[in-house]
């Protein structure tokens, strides 16, 4: 009862600010998709493409380095080969395939997105969405527990306040009818009144 009443009271105040906040949120979202949606293949030079590809290919003889970063001889040779293939008109995928055929999948700095390797890419999505999901559910549950405690508290408060009001009213009525002092322990602060009442 009390909660429905407070909803009506707060409702109109919440609404306009919510609209403002959601407008900003929507605007941000739209901006995000507008900005990310219009990604176009830039007019990158072949050299830039070669560097980018070099960052996606591992150096076979170095621990965990891509050929882009390595100074090893084989890395230098591979970089030249990448550039050669690009000059010959190969696509990025063709260049990668060229090296996978010769060195195996290990040569790719990130696993391909097919077959078993798909697992490598799906798991992060599950982890992140699952994590956020668990966080939201946890908050919701903690909040529900809180609201139950709160509503119990509200009831107690209501009983105290309303019962107090009611009793006070009864007392006032009694005062009017009998002209007696209306203190009977409801209002603790005026303890003196009670003793006066007893005296009179």
């Amino acid at each position: 009862m009390a909660s429905r009443f407070s909803f009506v009271m707060i409702g109109p105040r919440v609404l306009p600010s919510n609209v403002g906040a959601s407008a900003i949120a929507v605007l941000l979202f739209v901006l995000f998709f507008v900005t990310t949606g219009c990604i176009r293949e830039e007019d990158v030079t072949l050299e830039q493409r070669a560097h980018q590809l070099a960052g996606e290919l591992m150096c076979p003889v170095c621990d965990g380095q891509t050929i882009d970063g390595s100074n090893a001889q084989i890395a230098q040779d591979m970089r030249l080969k990448v550039r050669d293939l690009l000059d010959g008109g190969s696509t990025n995928a063709e260049v990668k395939d060229y090296f996978v055929i010769r060195y195996g999948q290990e040569i790719l700095a990130a696993p391909s997105r097919s077959g078993f390797n798909l697992l490598a890419w799906i798991m992060p999505v599950i982890i992140v969405l699952g994590g956020i999901g668990i966080a939201l559910i946890t908050i919701k549950n903690m909040r529900k527990a809180g609201q139950q405690a709160q509503s119990l508290n509200d009831q107690r408060q209501f009983l105290q306040n309303d019962l107090a009001d009611y009793l006070a009213q009864v007392d006032r009525d009694l005062v009017i009818s009998s002209k007696l002092n209306p203190n009977d322990g409801v209002d603790q602060t005026t303890g003196t009144g009670e003793s006066e009442a007893v005296k009179s």
Partner: peptide, 25 residues
């Protein structure tokens, strides 16, 4: 996710005997 990336090559080796690299990209 980082732990998964670190362990995935081990898993790939173990599960199907194929070596893969999981690096910066």
């Amino acid at each position: 996710v980082t732990l998964w990336g670190v362990l995935f090559p081990v898993l790939s080796d173990f599960a199907r005997d194929v070596s893969v690299s999981v690096s910066a990209p």
